[in-house]
Structures are given as structure tokens and as C-alpha cells.
Lab assay of single mutants.
Amino acid sequence: NNDALSPAIRRLLAEWNLDASAIKGTGVGGRLTREDVEKHLAKA
């Protein structure tokens, strides 16, 4: 759900053309954090 994404995370996902549903969020309530996105990018 994009409503739970911060503007910074939305921008990062758009910049790298990533799908938020493909990344497991570790923040409060399962929210994506910058670290989650960076770890996903490191694996790719």
C-alpha cells in the first residue's frame, strides 16, 4: 500500500524502478525503511 510509504521511500523506489511489494519492510508496522530498500538493491 503506497499510503504507508514516506515521500523519501516513494522517490527512492521510483528512482530505481522498484516495486514496493517485492521488498519486506522492517519498520514500524512493516513499513519500508531506507535500509530495507538499500539491502534489496545490494542483493540485486
Score class of each variant (00 low, 15 high):
1 N>M: 12
1 N>G: 13
1 N>A: 14
1 N>P: 13
1 N>V: 13
1 N>H: 13
1 N>S: 13
1 N>D: 15
1 N>F: 07
2 N>F: 08
2 N>S: 12
2 N>V: 12
2 N>I: 14
2 N>R: 11
2 N>Y: 07
2 N>W: 05
2 N>T: 13
2 N>D: 14
2 N>G: 10
2 N>L: 13
3 D>M: 10
3 D>N: 11
3 D>K: 10
3 D>W: 00
3 D>V: 09
3 D>S: 10
3 D>R: 09
3 D>A: 10
3 D>L: 09
4 A>P: 11
4 A>I: 14
4 A>Y: 15
4 A>V: 14
4 A>Q: 14
4 A>F: 15
4 A>T: 13
4 A>R: 13
4 A>E: 14
4 A>N: 14
4 A>S: 14
4 A>M: 14
4 A>G: 14
4 A>D: 14
5 L>T: 06
5 L>P: 05
5 L>R: 02
5 L>E: 07
5 L>A: 05
5 L>G: 04
5 L>C: 13
5 L>Y: 07
5 L>V: 10
6 S>K: 04
6 S>N: 07
6 S>Q: 06
6 S>M: 06
6 S>E: 13
7 P>M: 09
7 P>D: 15
7 P>A: 14
7 P>H: 10
7 P>L: 09
7 P>T: 11
7 P>V: 13
7 P>Y: 01
7 P>R: 10
8 A>C: 15
8 A>N: 07
8 A>I: 11
8 A>P: 05
8 A>Q: 10
8 A>L: 09
8 A>Y: 06
8 A>F: 06
8 A>T: 10
9 I>H: 02
9 I>V: 12
9 I>G: 01
9 I>W: 04
9 I>K: 00
9 I>L: 13
9 I>F: 04
9 I>D: 02
10 R>Y: 02
10 R>F: 01
10 R>M: 05
10 R>G: 05
10 R>E: 12
10 R>T: 09
10 R>I: 15
10 R>W: 02
10 R>K: 13
10 R>H: 06
10 R>L: 08
10 R>S: 08
10 R>D: 06
10 R>V: 12
11 R>Q: 14
11 R>N: 12
11 R>M: 10
11 R>L: 10
11 R>K: 15
11 R>Y: 06
11 R>P: 01
11 R>I: 09
11 R>W: 08
11 R>S: 11
11 R>A: 15
12 L>A: 04
12 L>G: 00
12 L>S: 00
12 L>K: 03
12 L>F: 05
12 L>N: 00
12 L>Q: 04
13 L>C: 13
13 L>M: 04
13 L>T: 01
13 L>V: 04
13 L>A: 00
13 L>Q: 00
13 L>F: 02
13 L>N: 00
13 L>R: 00
13 L>P: 00
14 A>Q: 14
14 A>E: 15
14 A>C: 15
14 A>Y: 11
14 A>H: 12
14 A>M: 13
14 A>V: 10
15 E>R: 06
15 E>D: 15
15 E>Y: 13
15 E>N: 05
15 E>H: 10
15 E>I: 07
15 E>S: 04
15 E>L: 08
15 E>T: 04
15 E>Q: 07
15 E>M: 08
17 N>P: 06
17 N>I: 04
17 N>W: 06
17 N>T: 03
17 N>A: 07
17 N>R: 04
17 N>Q: 12
18 L>V: 14
18 L>K: 05
18 L>H: 08
18 L>F: 05
18 L>Y: 05
18 L>I: 15
18 L>P: 05
18 L>G: 08
18 L>T: 07
18 L>N: 05
18 L>Q: 07
18 L>E: 10
18 L>D: 07
19 D>T: 06
19 D>K: 04
19 D>N: 07
19 D>S: 06
19 D>I: 07
19 D>E: 12
19 D>G: 04
19 D>L: 08
19 D>A: 06
20 A>R: 02
20 A>Y: 07
20 A>K: 03
20 A>M: 08
20 A>L: 09
20 A>W: 07
20 A>F: 07
20 A>V: 10
20 A>N: 02
21 S>E: 12
21 S>A: 12
21 S>R: 08
21 S>H: 06
21 S>P: 04
21 S>V: 09
21 S>N: 11
21 S>F: 06
21 S>M: 09
22 A>M: 14
22 A>H: 12
22 A>R: 06
22 A>N: 11
22 A>L: 13
22 A>F: 09
22 A>I: 11
22 A>S: 13
22 A>P: 04
22 A>Q: 14
22 A>K: 11
23 I>S: 01
23 I>Y: 00
23 I>Q: 01
23 I>T: 01
23 I>N: 01
23 I>D: 02
23 I>E: 01
24 K>E: 14
24 K>G: 05
24 K>I: 14
24 K>F: 08
24 K>T: 14
24 K>P: 11
24 K>A: 11
24 K>C: 14
24 K>W: 05
24 K>Q: 14
25 G>E: 02
25 G>M: 04
25 G>P: 09
25 G>R: 05
25 G>W: 01
25 G>V: 06
25 G>F: 00
25 G>D: 03
25 G>Q: 04
26 T>D: 03
26 T>C: 05
26 T>I: 04
26 T>F: 03
26 T>S: 09
26 T>N: 04
26 T>G: 03
26 T>H: 04
26 T>R: 02
26 T>Q: 03
27 G>Y: 00
27 G>W: 01
27 G>F: 02
27 G>L: 02
27 G>P: 02
27 G>D: 04
27 G>R: 01
27 G>A: 04
27 G>I: 03
27 G>E: 02
28 V>C: 12
28 V>S: 09
28 V>P: 15
28 V>I: 13
28 V>N: 09
28 V>Y: 06
28 V>K: 11
28 V>A: 11
29 G>D: 13
29 G>L: 06
29 G>T: 04
29 G>E: 10
29 G>H: 07
29 G>P: 03
29 G>W: 01
29 G>Y: 01
29 G>S: 07
30 G>Y: 00
30 G>F: 00
30 G>T: 03
30 G>M: 00
30 G>A: 04
30 G>R: 03
30 G>P: 02
30 G>H: 03
30 G>E: 04
31 R>M: 15
31 R>Y: 07
31 R>T: 14
31 R>P: 04
31 R>I: 14
31 R>E: 11
31 R>S: 14
31 R>Q: 15
31 R>A: 14
31 R>K: 13
31 R>H: 08
32 L>W: 03
32 L>Y: 02
32 L>M: 05
32 L>E: 00
32 L>R: 01
32 L>C: 07
32 L>D: 00
32 L>F: 03
32 L>P: 04
32 L>K: 01
32 L>Q: 01
33 T>V: 05
33 T>E: 04
33 T>S: 06
33 T>M: 05
33 T>R: 06
33 T>W: 00
33 T>P: 01
33 T>G: 03
34 R>D: 10
34 R>M: 15
34 R>V: 15
34 R>F: 15
34 R>G: 05
34 R>L: 15
34 R>N: 11
34 R>T: 11
34 R>S: 09
34 R>A: 12
34 R>E: 14
35 E>M: 11
35 E>Y: 08
35 E>I: 08
35 E>L: 10
35 E>D: 10
35 E>P: 05
35 E>Q: 11
35 E>G: 09
35 E>A: 11
36 D>L: 02
36 D>S: 00
36 D>M: 02
36 D>T: 00
36 D>E: 01
36 D>G: 00
36 D>V: 01
37 V>R: 00
37 V>M: 03
37 V>G: 01
37 V>D: 01
37 V>S: 01
37 V>N: 00
37 V>T: 00
38 E>R: 08
38 E>G: 04
38 E>Y: 15
38 E>F: 15
38 E>H: 08
38 E>V: 14
39 K>M: 12
39 K>A: 14
39 K>W: 07
39 K>Q: 12
39 K>S: 10
39 K>P: 02
39 K>T: 10
39 K>H: 12
39 K>G: 09
40 H>V: 11
40 H>K: 04
40 H>P: 00
40 H>C: 06
40 H>I: 11
40 H>Q: 06
40 H>E: 07
41 L>F: 07
41 L>K: 04
41 L>D: 03
41 L>V: 10
41 L>P: 02
41 L>T: 04
41 L>E: 03
41 L>Q: 04
41 L>S: 03
42 A>F: 07
42 A>E: 11
42 A>S: 10
42 A>Y: 07
42 A>L: 11
42 A>K: 12
42 A>Q: 13
42 A>C: 14
42 A>I: 11
43 K>G: 12
43 K>A: 13
43 K>S: 12
43 K>W: 07
43 K>Q: 12
43 K>H: 10
43 K>V: 10
43 K>N: 12
43 K>Y: 07
43 K>C: 14
43 K>M: 14
44 A>V: 15
44 A>L: 15
44 A>Q: 14
44 A>R: 12
44 A>H: 13
44 A>F: 13
44 A>S: 14
44 A>C: 12
